[in-house]
């Protein structure tokens, strides 16, 4: 689904924020991405949702090299990716409904299908009563749930979420992670960047640890490192 081969990334003439990153995420996998602040998590996510091109190396998403695909193909690939941005990036002049409906409208779905999907997902994130609200009238947590609903509404093949539960209480956070797990069970590949060690413990999936521009993957299920979460807790 996603593969990185010796990927380096720098912004302008600045230092490399990612160096020689190599990994492969198979289709239908569920991974956490973690690391200290400034480790390059958001940059890595940007490469995965095709928001940036690598300075060097090869990034493949859906088997396509993102540097060499045509512009039209890149747009097509983006329609299959659901992204939850750290800063939500909701459109302030659109209602919650229209924000959530946006990816489906872009993909050209019919209004009745959009309505059906949007209402279902708004129910799921517990905001059905805020369907007509503008984002700036909602709390941070509610905005985050709208952003999550928008990312999953069109049933994307790949979900990339950057700190999706940062503003949510544990109960709602658990509910959202369960939603991601459900989608994952239906075949969606999920990558969640988070600092929330408790959630990583509660939902034991492989963890991509990014530190000083380099990356390693730990799988709690294999229990190689019994103290993985304790170490992560200390590190953050």
């Amino acid at each position: 689904m996603i593969s990185f081969e010796y990927v380096g990334l720098r912004y302008g003439f600045g230092p490399e924020v990612l160096s020689d990153i190599s990994f492969e995420l198979p289709p239908g996998s569920f991974h956490f991405l973690t690391g200290p602040s400034g480790a390059g998590k958001t940059s890595l996510m940007r490469l995965m949702y095709l928001g940036h091109l690598p300075t060097r190396g090869v990034v493949k998403v859906f088997g396509e090299n993102i540097t060499s695909v045509s512009r039209a193909k890149r747009m097509e690939m983006r329609q299959k990716i659901g992204t939850v941005f750290q800063d939500f990036r909701l459109l302030p002049h659109l209602s919650a409904y229209d924000n959530v409906a946006l990816p489906m409208r872009i993909s050209g779905h019919k209004e009745d299908k959009i309505k059906n999907n949007v209402e279902k997902i708004m129910d799921w994130v517990g905001l059905n009563d805020q369907i007509n609200a503008l984002p700036n009238t909602l709390s941070g947590g509610q905005q985050q749930r709208i952003a999550i609903a928008r990312a999953v509404v069109s049933r994307p093949k790949l979900i990339l979420a950057d700190e999706p539960t940062g503003n949510l209480d544990d109960k709602i956070g658990q509910r959202i992670f369960k939603l991601f797990e459900q989608l994952n069970k239906m075949g969606t590949t999920v990558v969640i960047a988070t600092h929330n060690v408790t959630m990583m413990q509660d939902f034991p999936h492989p963890v991509m640890i990014l530190d000083h521009g380099a990356m390693r993957i730990e799988d709690p299920a294999l229990q190689k490192d019994q103290n993985l979460f304790a170490k992560l807790e200390d590190a953050f």
Partner: peptide, 8 residues
């Protein structure tokens, strides 16, 4: 943002 969602 629209581009990132795949808007042509």
């Amino acid at each position: 943002l629209l581009h990132l969602m795949g808007a042509t």
